[in-house]
Write a protein that binds this DNA or RNA. Structure first.
Length: 487
RNA sequence: GGCGGCGUAGCCAAGUGGUAAGGCCGGAGUCUGCAAAACUCCUAUGCGUCGGUUCAAUUCCGACCGCCGCCUCCA
């Protein structure tokens, strides 16, 4: 099956063929670290994470680079407000970025380059552009000469004249053309600066991504992801800078993530209607937040509201219940599933295969995570049905198929990050917990024998307070520590 | 003005030229001391409106209505 990606550049679904077979070079636009990131930002980061995971699932070797913009007007302003150094401010939010994104299960990129650590690469790229007449210096500032690049506007599908007509561009009289943008900004008093051939100053916003993508990946990369708002001007400018500098295509597949909305409006820093991931993870389980963020296809707007998060929490609980129920079969050996006699087992095996095929077919269509969730939950229902018809003395055949169901389910859920396998609790502490629980359950069982329901219910209720859930069934009482109990 | 997106059950959301995945909530049952979980059944003759093409459209075409976004920093 072939993966297809919607390429913003062509506005079409295209079959994904990486430049180098089996290898994918991927760049994800990361945060500007002047504040915590909100769940709208998280949506984009999460999409990158899932694209990467799915490509790995398809056996590609992925190199993912995600930048950290650690010098910028907003950082300077915010640092001034707080009376601290830009570096301190940036470092604080870099740390927060890693902490919060890791809570959401977003894996670190292979490289997280910072703008301030690539000043020399940036300067040399700017110099190349100047040498090629694609940039010019005025009073220590360097501007990109948009007119020099005939294809300017090809990503955002804008005509040069339209860009002028809109004319919300701040007019700087010194620029040759209002559309020209900063490559290097001369520093004003009190601003941080780096030495350059033109002035003591700092890089413009767009140039860092070109420089760092080329340094850590290549002059042509396969996939570049970012929020929809970055199409213009950020990514348009990246193309202009990079392609003039190298004479090569910069990015082969551009992916842009639609906005997360709140109350029907875009969640944005400038709208003051955002919810920090930092706060959301206090309230909802990471898997629930992920489930919510991927419950719509990434190119469709998604509206945030507490109800949706609650729905996702419930959905994730259903999934966890199913996987937990499969847990006991996890380590059953054997793939030898030829010649099954048990018709039910055969049917479940077919369900497993169907689920995997459907999952892949759906994800192959431009990472349709919402559809993928559908296939997973359909399968959950089938597994539950099978389990309901299977008692504790399941046959070897059934145990083996259940084991396979477990592994398949965990694998696809891991691609989406909506299920995290718990570390095997094997320390002394866990063993003690186990024994204590056995003791408690034994006492409770005695109470139940006597029909002393008050005592039995008291034990159950108080354990629940400790996030331990008891379930009485014919086969006895089971317990488990609730995951994602925040929701 | 230019470019783009969205409108599918109470809510969220897939999807297809041939008759609507999945989740949540709700209702009725099974199981259970009760609960929880799970299971069973029920919940859109209809996919914004109006036209057109077609044997057949929610799916294609056109018009319209409503909502949103980008064109300026924002994922």
């Amino acid at each position: 099956m072939a993966l297809k990606i919607y390429n913003s550049l062509t506005r079409q679904l295209e079959e994904f063929v990486p430049l180098h077979e089996g290898k994918v070079l991927m760049y994800s636009c990361g945060p500007t670290v002047y504040d915590y990131f909100h769940i709208g930002n998280a949506r984009t980061f999460l999409v990158s994470d899932i694209v990467r995971r799915y490509l790995e699932y398809k056996n590609y070797t992925v190199t993912l680079v995600q930048n950290l913009t650690d010098i910028d007007d907003k950082i300077i302003n915010r640092a001034n407000e707080q009376g601290i150094d830009c570096c301190q401010l940036a470092q604080k939010y870099v740390d927060a970025y890693f902490e919060d994104s890791s809570k959401l299960g977003i894996r670190s990129a292979d490289v997280h380059p910072r703008a301030t650590e690539h000043i020399s690469e940036i300067i040399s790229l700017i110099q190349t552009l100047i040498d090629k007449q694609a940039a010019y210096e005025i009073d220590g500032d360097v501007y990109y000469r948009v007119n020099h690049f005939a294809e300017y506007g090809k990503l955002s599908h804008r005509k040069p004249e339209d860009l002028l007509a809109g004319a919300r561009v701040e007019v700087d009289e010194r620029k040759e053309d209002p559309r020209d943008f900063d490559l290097w900004k001369k520093s004003k008093a009190g601003e941080p600066w780096w030495d350059s051939p033109w002035s003591k100053g700092r890089p413009g916003w767009h140039i860092e991504c070109s420089a760092m993508a080329m340094k850590h990946l290549d002059e042509t990369i396969d996939i570049h992801t970012g929020g929809h708002d970055l199409i213009f001007p950020h990514h348009e400018n990246e193309i202009a800078q990079s392609e003039v500098a190298t004479g090569k295509a910069f990015v082969r597949y551009w992916m842009h993530v639609a906005f997360l909305q709140i109350d029907g409006r875009r969640m944005g820093k400038s709208e003051s209607n955002f919810i920090f991931v930092h706060d959301a993870v206090q309230q909802y389980a990471p898997e629930a937040i992920r489930h919510f963020l991927i419950s719509a296809q990434y190119r469709h707007p998604l509206d945030y509201n507490p109800t949706s998060l609650k729905e996702s929490s419930s959905a994730v609980r259903r999934l966890n219940n199913c996987i937990d129920a499969l847990g006991p079969y996890r380590d059953v050996a054997g793939d030898a599933l030829e010649g099954l006699n048990d018709a039910e087992a055969v049917r479940l095996l077919e369900s497993i295969n169907t689920m995997r095929d459907d999952f892949e077919a759906t994800m192959d269509e431009d990472f349709n995570t919402a559809g993928a969730l559908g296939t997973i939950f359909k399968f959950v229902g089938e597994v539950n049905q099978f389990l309901a018809a299977t008692d504790n003395t399941a046959s070897e055949e059934r145990r083996s198929v259940l084991s396979q169901a477990y592994r398949s389910l965990v694998e696809v859920c891991s691609v989406l990050g909506i299920y995290t396998e718990e570390e095997v609790a094997s320390d002394a502490h866990a063993a003690l917990t186990e024994e204590l629980m056995n003791l408690i359950l034994e006492v409770r069982e005695d109470a139940r024998e006597r029909k002393d329901w008050d005592t039995a219910d008291k034990i159950r209720d108080q354990l629940e307070q400790l996030n331990i859930e008891l379930q009485d069934s014919r086969g006895g009482t089971t317990w488990r520590i609730l995951k994602g109990a925040k929701g």
